[in-house]
Design a protein around this nucleic acid. Structure first.
Lengths: 226, 226
DNA sequence: TAGATTGTTAATCGATTAACAATC
DNA sequence: TAGATTGTTAATCGATTAACAATC
């Protein structure tokens, strides 16, 4: 894989900028300054300018993204981001695990909007209510290798229970998958050429829980004082 | 809110350690070294020791967590983490939005396992299949203020479409909610005393898309050479 | 021109890694 | 005692913020 200099942190924010710019374009906004965008997103304008600068260096882009005194041209910047992030290319994605979380991902609009399409869905259980959805093909997990290899699927989402995640990962990697979004609450081991992103739903909630319990102990403390 | 010195990055890893320790305890493991834990989690042993050290300083804990030459006593460390993260306290959470994502969250086992219970569910649509689930109370969004105020609910999950998210946030904050896990793909503005965590499902996928398109352009490059 | 805002460098801040004495 | 592993400080690395000249 090419060594990109761009960090995950910056990449995540670029994704956020992308989505915001898209909405701005829909609303026929021509220019947006880093200050305005920052207010919309709760990010400092310094940070936004710096991220876009780093990104421009990363893709070795000649011209400036913005116009001094005016801001960034929405459609122009959007197009560059779209191209570099590989969006709206109609990428076909496999989903393994069609339980309630998998079902939610299938009907999650945000993926489709950016051209990332869950097309092949695998589960051990064939009798699911979500089966008759348009544009999606349902298969048994037995067929993963066959279908993914044949269709050269490179990206997959794991939405199976934690204890099945590593087995599933092994199978899809064997079938040629190189990019995995892992919703199973466990670490999975893959070869060097494969990239995994963990999307762990409970981590965020645990973080909040920490602050809640701190808040409460503070309240107790205040009460004890008064 | 008390100024905690612990960073979000560390906090997230503590949540990961917690879950791992829980599994180790179930498997009757007495001691685990930072090296072994690191191998399970794909995190360096240095990082783990340092995180636990920072955490210990943060909670002003006298005694060492680990035993030199042996590692960390699983149950002991688990108990400390549990207490400090406020887990297994049977916290009652409100969920606003019972669409397919909301439905998936309701049946997501990981939350329950750590004592974070989605108890009050609100939606504009009363005719949902998920309605007849045990231990959960369904209400119309009209009743948010009444129910949350009465039951002093402090934590809530937003799983409504992006354009409704800010309105929902305003209502639940008004009703006394102080901690929000936001699944809507948009930034929401809240007062200073309220904490929001964004759980944005498409950001991770966009990140992968970036690497996919880089990989492909590299392949094209190699092909062009040969 | 005056005002606004970018691009970019330098300064600061925070997080990770390295190293090793302490000690089980 | 020898081997292992923690606790903790110092060194390094990376990310954010500040600052301001360039320029629309």
């Amino acid at each position: 894989m090419r060594e990109t200099t761009i960090s995950n942190t910056v990449l995540e924010r670029l994704a956020i900028y992308y989505r915001s710019l898209k909405r701005l374009e829909e609303n026929k906004v021509d220019y947006i300054s880093s200050k305005e965008l920052g207010e919309i997103l709760g990010i400092s304008s310094d940070q936004i300018r710096r991220d876009l600068y780093d990104f421009r260096m990363d893709i070795s882009y000649y011209h400036d993204f913005g116009v001094r005194g005016r801001g960034y041209p929405v459609s122009y910047l959007l197009k560059i981001l779209e191209k570099s992030l590989g969006l709206n290319n109609n990428v076909e994605i496999a989903l393994i695990g069609a339980g309630s979380l998998g079902g939610a991902l299938i009907s999650y609009d945000e993926f489709k909007k950016i051209g990332l399409n869950i097309k092949y869905v695998f589960d051990i259980n064939f009798n699911k209510a979500i089966r008759d959805l348009a544009g999606i093909e349902f298969y048994d997990v037995e067929q993963i290798d066959e279908i993914l290899t044949k269709n050269q699927v490179k990206m997959a989402i794991i939405a199976v229970p934690a204890k099945a995640a590593q087995d599933v990962a092994d199978i899809i990697v064997e079938a040629g998958v190189e990019l995995i979004l892992n919703f199973a609450p466990t670490y999975i081991e893959v070869p060097n050429n494969v990239m995994v992103r963990n999307e762990d739903l409970s981590i965020g909630l645990i973080g909040l829980s920490y602050y809640l319990s701190n808040k409460e102990s503070e309240l107790t403390f205040v009460k004890n004082l008064g």
